[in-house]
Simulated assay, not measured.
Amino acid sequence: MIMSAEEIQNELKNLPNWDNNEDRAIVREYKFSNYLDGIEFVKEVAAHAENVQHHPKITIDHTQVTISFTTVDQGGVTEKDFNAAKEVERLAEDVQ
């Protein structure tokens, strides 16, 4: 079920580095010391996404990786996106 703007803002309090993109996605930029660390992070995120069948939009720009989650079949942000974002936070800690 799609979350309301208020519900999204409340959930973002638990993920302070994530932003809301017009209630349609949650987004975070990660910075790495070098390109290959960012690629390693993306590989970890991709493996997790495949396991749970919930795939983010990933943009790689040298040492910056942007992750964006939305639940496409629901047309907005759901609890599934926040669960995935929390796992991505854990994965980032392992790489950084």
Rank of each mutant, 00 (worst) to 15 (best):
M1K: 11
M1D: 08
M3L: 14
M3D: 08
S4Q: 00
S4T: 08
A5W: 00
E7G: 04
E7I: 06
E7S: 02
E7N: 02
I8C: 04
N10H: 12
E11K: 15
L12W: 04
K13A: 03
N17T: 13
W18E: 04
W18P: 05
N20F: 01
N21R: 15
E22W: 03
E22F: 02
D23H: 04
R24I: 10
R24S: 15
A25S: 03
I26Y: 01
I26H: 00
V27T: 09
R28N: 14
R28F: 11
R28C: 14
K31M: 11
F32Q: 06
F32I: 06
N34R: 10
Y35S: 08
L36W: 14
L36A: 02
G38Q: 07
I39K: 10
V42R: 05
K43I: 08
V45S: 05
V45F: 06
A47M: 07
A47K: 13
H48M: 14
H48Q: 09
H48N: 11
A49W: 13
E50T: 02
E50R: 15
E50H: 04
N51W: 02
N51G: 06
N51H: 05
Q53G: 05
Q53I: 11
H54A: 01
H54G: 04
P56D: 08
P56W: 06
P56S: 08
K57H: 10
K57R: 14
I58L: 01
I58K: 03
I58D: 01
I60V: 04
D61R: 06
D61F: 12
T63L: 09
T66Q: 09
T66I: 06
I67K: 15
I67T: 06
I67W: 15
S68L: 10
T71P: 07
V72W: 14
D73Y: 11
G76V: 06
G76D: 02
T78W: 01
T78Q: 03
E79G: 02
E79P: 07
K80F: 08
D81Y: 07
D81S: 03
D81M: 10
F82R: 01
F82P: 04
N83F: 12
N83E: 14
N83T: 15
N83S: 05
A84S: 05
A84G: 04
A85L: 11
A85Q: 05
K86F: 04
R90M: 05
R90G: 12
A92Y: 10
A92G: 03
E93W: 02
V95H: 00
V95S: 02
Q96A: 13
